[in-house]
């Protein structure tokens, strides 16, 4: 089975993330870049499925040169090969453009199953999997907690507001997984060494038969016109409980008209 996992490199959520003053895009130099932590669950799911059902795991990422580090890490976890879509013209692409580029790369490499994280920690749209399914014309099984393959069909537990749905579809399909689905492995020393020799194919827009005016800031259907830092929160009242903490807290709720 041919499994492709979509992995995004993002600024570390633990640090102070910024937008660039010039074009309001995410500043990918100011803060250390890491694998989107939710994509680690997608990688793990892909590796487990390949182990169980046979086949290869391809790691696909669109991003600047340094995104290769994230692909390499995914290969160290156990992925077989990488595909890196990298082109200066991609800078500032929104979800619509990103989905077009990833769909073109997926169509080129072929797939039985595409696995994504449930969202990226920087963009947080959580819609890329749905967009890819739409573009590729294959079923969408998103927000999955647990993915099972049985012959030519795939079955997931899709988490929802009201509980969950069991969802079934024929392969090929697009799946996104939530962070409850598994426990991502750490790359072993052996895995890190092996990853150095694994192939990463670098693709430009031209390789995908896309042109520069179909990508990047210019082609995006959305734009940020302005941004500002949220004013720091007013320092609140902190009281030590000396036996009446609950009653004092009720006092706060009363003055704020919550009671």
């Amino acid at each position: 089975m041919n499994i492709t996992v979509c992995v995004k490199q993002v600024p570390d959520t633990g640090l102070d993330r910024e937008l660039r003053a010039g074009d309001s895009t995410v500043d990918r130099e100011a803060v250390e870049a890491v694998i989107n932590e939710l994509d680690e669950f997608a990688i793990e799911e892909g590796l487990q499925l390949a182990q169980k059902h046979g086949g290869e795991v391809t790691i696909l990422s669109m991003g600047p040169d340094q995104a290769a580090e994230s692909i390499r890490k995914a290969l160290a976890m156990g992925g077989d090969k990488g595909v890196h879509v990298s082109d200066p013209a991609l800078h500032g692409s929104d979800a619509l453009v990103t989905s077009a580029v990833l769909a073109a790369a997926l169509a080129r490499t072929g797939f039985d199953l595409v696995i994504l994280g449930s969202e990226s920690t920087d963009a947080r749209t959580g819609i890329l999997a749905a967009m890819l399914a739409e573009r590729l014309g294959v079923p969408q099984l998103t927000f999955a907690d647990g993915v099972e393959i049985d012959g030519q069909s795939v079955r997931v537990r899709r988490l929802a507001d009201y509980g969950y749905d069991m969802v079934e579809a024929d392969l090929p399909a697009v799946v996104s997984v939530v962070e409850k689905t598994n426990e991502p492995r750490y790359p072993s020393f052996k895995g890190i060494m092996a990853a150095k020799k694994k192939p990463i194919e670098v693709l430009t827009l031209a390789d995908l038969e896309l042109t520069a005016d179909q990508a990047g800031l210019g082609a995006s259907a959305t734009e940020v016109t302005e941004f500002r830092k949220r004013p720091p929160r007013q320092v609140g009242t902190i009281v030590e409980d000396e036996g009446k903490g609950g009653i004092e807290a009720a006092g706060f709720l009363t003055t704020q008209k919550f009671i």
């Binding site: 993330r17 937008l19 920087d122 995006s220 259907a221 959305t222 302005e226 830092k229 949220r230």
Partner: peptide, 14 residues
């Protein structure tokens, strides 16, 4: 965005 640290103004231009 970024957990509420920054607010952006944006528009869908297409």
């Amino acid at each position: 965005i970024f957990g509420g640290a920054i607010t952006v103004s944006s528009r869908a231009c297409s």
